[in-house]
Computed example of a mutant assay.
Amino acid sequence: MIPAANPHRLAALRNCRIKAGEEESALALQSPWRREHLFASQQALETVDFFGQQLAELDA
């Protein structure tokens, strides 16, 4: 289970290419999420973290 996150903290981490401001992004993050969306998001985050770790090892 993915713990609830602070939408304002998450909005502050948004990519610079996102045109919506921090407040608008935080509001969007407060909408109800379906379990399958949370699961897919968790899988994507773990994949990004894994590849980041692999790249760090290659650079070392």
Results as ranks from 00 to 15, higher is better:
23 E>K: 09
32 P>M: 02
22 E>Q: 15
34 R>S: 12
59 D>Y: 03
23 E>V: 03
57 E>R: 07
10 L>E: 01
6 N>Q: 10
41 S>N: 13
48 V>S: 03
37 H>N: 10
13 L>H: 08
59 D>T: 09
14 R>V: 01
18 I>M: 12
9 R>Q: 03
15 N>S: 14
38 L>E: 06
36 E>D: 14
29 L>M: 06
55 L>K: 04
3 P>Y: 01
49 D>G: 04
5 A>E: 02
59 D>I: 05
57 E>M: 03
46 E>V: 03
38 L>K: 06
57 E>L: 08
2 I>K: 07
18 I>Y: 02
40 A>G: 13
7 P>A: 00
21 G>P: 00
53 Q>C: 12
38 L>F: 11
39 F>P: 00
28 A>D: 06
47 T>P: 05
34 R>T: 09
41 S>P: 02
37 H>T: 13
26 A>Q: 04
8 H>R: 11
11 A>I: 06
26 A>C: 09
8 H>F: 03
48 V>D: 04
40 A>T: 12
25 S>T: 13
1 M>D: 15
17 R>S: 14
49 D>M: 08
19 K>G: 05
36 E>F: 10
24 E>M: 07
28 A>K: 05
37 H>L: 08
25 S>A: 15
20 A>L: 11
38 L>N: 07
34 R>K: 15
5 A>K: 04
30 Q>K: 15
8 H>L: 01
29 L>G: 01
56 A>R: 05
22 E>L: 11
14 R>Q: 14
18 I>G: 02
30 Q>D: 08
49 D>S: 10
10 L>I: 10
13 L>Q: 13
53 Q>E: 10
53 Q>S: 12
15 N>A: 15
52 G>C: 07
55 L>M: 11
23 E>Q: 13
59 D>N: 05
16 C>N: 08
57 E>S: 04
7 P>F: 00
44 A>Q: 09
59 D>P: 01
50 F>W: 10
56 A>M: 08
1 M>T: 14
24 E>P: 02
38 L>R: 07
22 E>C: 06
30 Q>A: 08
43 Q>H: 14
22 E>R: 10
19 K>F: 02
14 R>Y: 02
51 F>I: 13
22 E>G: 03
4 A>D: 13
13 L>Y: 05
11 A>H: 00
20 A>S: 14
21 G>V: 08
39 F>C: 10
31 S>N: 13
31 S>G: 14
50 F>V: 07
51 F>S: 12
34 R>C: 10
53 Q>K: 10
25 S>C: 15
4 A>F: 12
30 Q>N: 12
47 T>C: 11
8 H>Q: 08
41 S>H: 07
9 R>F: 02
12 A>Y: 11
21 G>F: 00
35 R>E: 09
6 N>L: 07
17 R>P: 02
47 T>A: 09
54 Q>T: 03
21 G>Y: 00
45 L>E: 05
32 P>G: 06
32 P>D: 04
12 A>H: 15
1 M>A: 14
43 Q>N: 12
38 L>P: 02
32 P>Y: 01
58 L>G: 04
56 A>Q: 05
5 A>C: 13
23 E>T: 04
43 Q>V: 11
2 I>T: 07
3 P>W: 00
